[in-house]
Design a protein around this nucleic acid. Sequence first.
DNA 1: GGTATGGTTTGATCTGTATCAATGCGTGTC
DNA 2: GACACGCATTGATACAGATCAAACCATACC
Lengths: 247, 247
Amino acid sequence: MDCLDQARPLGAHAGCSHHVKGEDCRLCLIRPLSVCSALEPDEWASLEKISTDVRFEERETLVREADDVVSLYTITAGVVRLVRTLHDGRRQLTGFALPGDFLGLSLERTWTFSIEAITPVTACRFGRATLMEYVDQKPHFLMRLHEMATHELSLAQDHMVLLGRLTAEEKLGAFLLEIRRRWARIEGHKSDHIPLPMGRQDIADYLGLTIETVSRTINQMQRAHHLVIVPDGVRLLNTGYFEHLCP
Amino acid sequence: MDCLDQARPLGAHAGCSHHVKGEDCRLCLIRPLSVCSALEPDEWASLEKISTDVRFEERETLVREADDVVSLYTITAGVVRLVRTLHDGRRQLTGFALPGDFLGLSLERTWTFSIEAITPVTACRFGRATLMEYVDQKPHFLMRLHEMATHELSLAQDHMVLLGRLTAEEKLGAFLLEIRRRWARIEGHKSDHIPLPMGRQDIADYLGLTIETVSRTINQMQRAHHLVIVPDGVRLLNTGYFEHLCP
DNA sequence: GGTATGGTTTGATCTGTATCAATGCGTGTC
DNA sequence: GACACGCATTGATACAGATCAAACCATACC
């Protein structure tokens, strides 16, 4: 089911910001995780020509909902949130993007969500028009984009189940296992230590809860010795509890 | 934003079951709405060879979650629900498919949801393997599938906002306007009469509510003269109320 | 007609999560 | 050290929607 999880692992922790690519796709550490894994070595050079490295500071907005799509991005370091905002200020995060994640799958003219940097972020930027030409010339690249889009769709359906039918405790459990799985794909091995660069409010807006309920639930889990809260996230003590929690 | 809404309208109400195609794509009434609209007239013939008409009775299951994908479908008449079920029986509907909707966008090996007929259904069935060859030969057909998939993704994000952040009243309002918009696309004109072939439980499982809350909310709206409940659905009396409701 | 059946509506009550309101705590700055 | 600032936590209370239970209503069938 999770066809994207077959890419080879990285040695380093890609969550922190370090030199990843420097305009040379051959040295790119997250390539095996990214959309570029659909390409042959001789194609990297052509892709390199149409891409540039960019950097965003914490809290910076990469794109705003309803903006024209002028560039697409592969996150190479750091974490961003994908945000939908209602007129009265209510927020729903539709996802977090971690290193290796591609933003702009849809090839549509305008963005349907805002993208905001949670940490300092580096990304590989592609011009929309040039990437569109690239897509036209390489059907297997379009096929890869399509696979990624339908994978996203399946994850979106998972998240609908979470939002519509899970309790606060189940939501938090599913969230922690999801983030753990995604870090594991980047780092190459599963760890009980789960960095959570996003704040409690972001978690709440992702899970359809309030910040108070998120805080209370995590602290209850700590009191029950299922995890410990550490400065940059949590450490799971009882993974069985979390796996059993997910129905 | 809604690129799929550009197809030409149908004169008749496609919700009811009538002769639609009869193995002749040239006569297909829902073609302009469907994935087939990406094809030229001379390509219909080749598509016709790989498709067959099938019929399902009310409550019949077209496919089961986790089943291998052997066939893909375009609904030609009737309505189906897309269902995810948790181990303890909790259900979340991820969507309804109406005439013109294509099921199997993902091209993956297994289904990630069950598909169940709400009414008698006719569909145009394609073998997965033959359609995959077709996709390989016609890049513009793959492009069309990709557009449809990313459109679905955008709708899925809309639904996340609904599930995570709207009140029961807002959920019902958004649901009725969504269904109205979708019938309008099929019928060719907007009507205040909204057929609701799905039961209250299905609406509840789609909106992340209970059947009692759905019933109460709709009846409240009736008491407030925003709509009237009719045998096959509802009729909106005050569309302004519904449009104002959606934040 | 009677009566079983499946879905819908309505009422009474409960509860999980939101809301409102402090308090705590770590970090950076002067 | 003292103070401010931005989160996170904790407590008290309110309420939207869930749950439990019963009645209602249309349809189909004998």
